[in-house]
């Protein structure tokens, strides 16, 4: 339901952009590749989409993962350093980087699920130290490398579609099937909505929370590889900086509660797309660049307020009685 609204809003943004720039929807084929603003938007939002999908899972269990930006930096640095200074095969480099993400996820899972620290504090530790670790790995330098395979991940294309968009699409598809076609989605939402009841109903609450953190670590690492591949190098200090906040924002825009429970995977994807499209729209509109962050913030906050339940209730109180009676659920009475 909320996803429908987000899609509608995204379409609105796209149409406004088309009005501003008639070429916005055009997709050209140059040298066997697709080019166009829409493709660009997809290309740019890929890392954030990867991160926000797994953030949706973490938030679904009622936790949070602030460390994804740091994990991106670590995994990106590992990719860059290995590609620049070692003779490892690119597949092995990729495996190492994802493995590092897995270890980071394991660390978070240990703190949150096993030791029971509040997730906000627990993942803050890696958020702060992770970027330091990444800088240690790169020795504080911007490490550049030259690898055909990794370059292909970032800038290559297959069937005319940028490989990054393909990877992102495959990931989204995998996630949706993996979470919604198994019982994982149900368990995640059940834990977020009521951990105690889920535990008593036999749900492996510990295992599921460990799983979402591992998953979050790996998908952040994948996102880090893509970002490193894009520029063929790693800047440990700035890679994926603040991406966790974008991801959380996207999840919240999709209508999820930060206390856990119902989550919308497609909603989170749409959230990222809306933020990215808005950025592009502000760019092509010729609006002074310094205003764009504030305008983005205004649009996002309006969207969130519009779907907030408490705002809805307050509005309904202002409405005349008959109207609010129709819109607000009444206390059910048991027929004896």
């Amino acid at each position: 339901m909320k996803t429908t609204w987000l899609i509608a809003f995204w379409l609105l943004l796209v149409s406004v952009s088309t009005l501003l720039e008639p070429d916005f929807l055009t997709i050209r084929i140059v040298n066997g590749r697709f080019f166009g603003s829409l493709i660009d938007i997809l290309h740019h939002s890929a890392p954030a989409i990867l991160v926000s999908l797994s953030m949706a899972l973490v938030i679904g269990t009622g936790n949070i993962d602030l460390s994804v930006g740091a994990i991106i930096a670590i995994a990106g640095s590992v990719t860059a350093v290995l590609a620049a200074y070692s003779q490892l095969s690119p597949y092995l480099i990729l495996a190492c980087s994802l493995g590092v993400g897995l270890i980071c996820g394991l660390w978070n899972a240990l703190l949150v699920a096993v030791l029971g620290l509040p997730s906000f504090v627990a993942t803050l530790i890696l958020m702060v130290s992770g970027r330091g670790i990444a800088q240690i790995i790169t020795d504080g330098q911007v490490v550049t490398f030259d690898s055909d395979f990794i370059n292909g991940l970032g800038n290559g294309h297959l069937w005319g579609i940028p490989s990054r968009v393909l990877i992102m699409g495959a990931f989204v598809l995998f996630m949706v099937v993996f979470i919604r076609k198994t019982a994982l989605g149900l368990f995640i939402e059940a834990i977020g909505a009521n951990t105690r009841a889920s535990y008593l109903a036999g749900v492996n609450t510990l295992g599921i929370v460990v799983f979402v953190y591992l998953f979050s670590g790996v998908s952040a690492a994948l996102s880090g590889v893509l970002l490193a591949a894009d520029i063929q190098g790693a800047d440990a200090a700035n890679m994926g900086l603040w991406i966790e906040l974008d991801a959380i924002l996207a999840v919240v825009m999709a209508g999820a509660s930060l206390f856990g429970g119902r989550m919308s995977l497609l909603g989170a994807v749409m959230g990222v797309l809306i933020i990215q499209t808005l950025t592009s729209m502000l760019l092509i509109s010729g609006f002074p660049a310094q205003y764009s962050l504030v305008i983005k913030a205004l649009v996002v906050i309006t969207l969130i307020i519009a779907q907030s339940e408490s705002v809805g209730q307050k509005l309904s109180r202002l409405l005349p009685r008959q109207l609010s009676r129709r819109w607000c659920p009444q206390k059910p009475r048991e027929e004896l």
Partner: peptide
Amino acid sequence: NVSGIIAELSVRE
């Protein structure tokens, strides 16, 4: 309410 039902989820779930 505390340890039985999962209020937010549906009857089916």
